[in-house]
Amino acid sequence: MSEIARTRREWLLSERPASRLQARLGRAYVTWRRFSSNRLAMVGLGIIVALLVVAALADVLAPQSATIGDLKNARLLPPSSAHIFGTDDLGRDILSRIIYGSRLTLYVVALVAIIAAPVGLLVGTVAGYAGGWIDAILMRITDIFLAFPKLILALAFVAALGPGIENAVLAIAITSWPPYARIARAETLTVRNSDYIKAVQLMGASPFHIVLRHIMPLCISSLIVRVTLDMAGIILTAAGLGFVGLGAQPPLPEWGAMIASGRRFILDQWWVAAAPGGAILIVSLGFNLLGDGLRDALDPRSGGQ
């Protein structure tokens, strides 16, 4: 067994890969080794994997319904063996609501990342590579978006589009792409005059081809790091929108909305707000640790070359 593991590692770390696949896997393996040697990053990864598992198996894991409570007998019960995190003012089991709420959290985070990161990447690399008036126009638009306070702009968008989780996602995405554009542009500016980009120009490649195939891959790792570190902020913004009542609407078990509803009896029934608050804290911490680990593992400037 260990013999097989050793030969596999030798194959991955080979200085003379024999195929495209081996070269790519070898590189991924080196990155993984650098990442996994960081204990805290592994803790972060563990938290995120746990979140994914909980969200996927919510129907199996949740002991009770997230939306239907027992108004007659189970209002605001403190934590006990029947309700580990207690119950809220409508008699719903808080643990079940948190488990189902993980789906909403993932939904928001994933959608924002899918919308905002590519937009920022495209705007930043095109502005950085084209330069001149294209750069000026794109970056001034970015500056305008950056000048607005994020939560206030999101509030304005939600107020205009109407409350609801889809609109909250859209609002957060619209306010979070400008930093990605800035990063992508800065990275592009450092590589656009390098000899290896000049060499591709000398092959007669089109600007579109150069940006897509040669510049974007170089920007992606720093962007992944930044997006991961921003995940915590996105969760908090979504929770904030939920808290002021413009995010997820009742009876959806969104963590921010749960804190908002627990605010009224925070002194006597502390567990109603504490449990979702703790969940937000742990998941945000998980994303931050993961992002830090990814920065160390993916940073093109540290090691590897």
Binding site: P17, L202, G204
Partner: peptide, 22 residues
């Protein structure tokens, strides 16, 4: 570009850092 090609001075800067020779 099929008639004229160039070799740069610094071989450390003229090869893309994330691409294989292939």
């Amino acid at each position: 570009y099929r008639q004229v090609q160039m070799v740069f001075q610094d071989p450390y800067g003229s090869l893309h850092p994330r691409q294989t020779v292939d």
